[in-house]
Computed example of a mutant assay.
Amino acid sequence: MPTTDEVELAMQRIRAWQTAYVDMIETLPYPIFVERRGRMLMCNARGRVMLETLDADGDAAARRVLTIVH
């Protein structure tokens, strides 16, 4: 069974991977949307700009993009 220190180290590594993943997505020159089970979890700066250009509130814009994707 893992020790508390091992679990803490594993969680730190997971957080570092998540940060690196988000940082990489932010550098891409086109909109990126990450969704799970039909719910938008995050998007990069280009994705946020795209959502803002849609004539809808934030939730409606996200649903519209997810509909297009599906």
Rank of each mutant, 00 (worst) to 15 (best):
M1C: 01
P2M: 00
T3V: 07
T4Y: 12
T4P: 11
T4S: 10
D5Y: 04
D5K: 03
V7F: 01
V7Y: 10
V7C: 07
V7G: 05
A10S: 00
A10N: 04
A10R: 02
A10V: 02
M11L: 12
Q12M: 08
Q12T: 08
Q12L: 09
R13S: 12
I14M: 13
I14Q: 11
I14R: 08
I14V: 11
R15G: 09
A16Q: 13
A16T: 12
A16D: 15
A16F: 14
Q18N: 12
Q18H: 14
Q18M: 15
T19R: 13
A20Y: 07
A20H: 08
Y21E: 05
Y21F: 07
Y21A: 08
Y21N: 13
V22K: 13
V22H: 11
V22G: 07
V22M: 06
D23H: 12
D23Q: 02
D23F: 02
M24L: 14
I25C: 09
I25D: 05
E26G: 04
E26S: 01
T27N: 10
T27G: 12
L28N: 15
L28M: 15
L28Q: 15
P29Q: 07
P29C: 02
Y30E: 07
Y30A: 11
P31D: 05
P31C: 03
P31E: 07
P31F: 06
I32C: 15
I32L: 14
F33V: 03
F33Y: 13
V34N: 08
V34Q: 11
V34S: 11
V34M: 12
V34R: 06
E35L: 09
E35K: 08
R36D: 15
R36L: 15
R37S: 15
R37G: 13
R37T: 14
G38V: 04
G38L: 05
G38N: 14
R39L: 11
R39W: 12
R39D: 13
L41C: 12
L41R: 14
M42A: 15
M42S: 13
C43T: 07
N44W: 01
N44T: 07
N44Y: 03
A45L: 03
A45R: 10
A45C: 07
A45K: 08
R46W: 08
R46K: 12
R46Y: 09
R46T: 09
G47H: 06
G47M: 02
G47E: 11
R48K: 01
R48G: 11
V49Q: 15
V49H: 13
V49N: 13
L51S: 00
L51D: 00
E52G: 05
E52K: 00
T53F: 00
L54W: 08
L54D: 02
L54P: 04
D55K: 05
D55H: 06
D55W: 01
A56Q: 00
D57H: 01
D57N: 02
D57P: 04
D57Q: 05
G58A: 14
G58N: 05
D59K: 06
D59M: 10
D59E: 13
A60L: 10
A60F: 00
A60E: 11
A61Q: 10
A62L: 01
A62G: 08
A62H: 01
A62W: 00
R63Y: 06
R64I: 11
V65P: 04
V65G: 11
L66N: 03
L66A: 10
T67Q: 13
T67D: 14
I68Y: 12
I68C: 10
I68V: 09
I68P: 02
V69N: 10
V69S: 09
V69D: 00
H70N: 05
H70T: 06
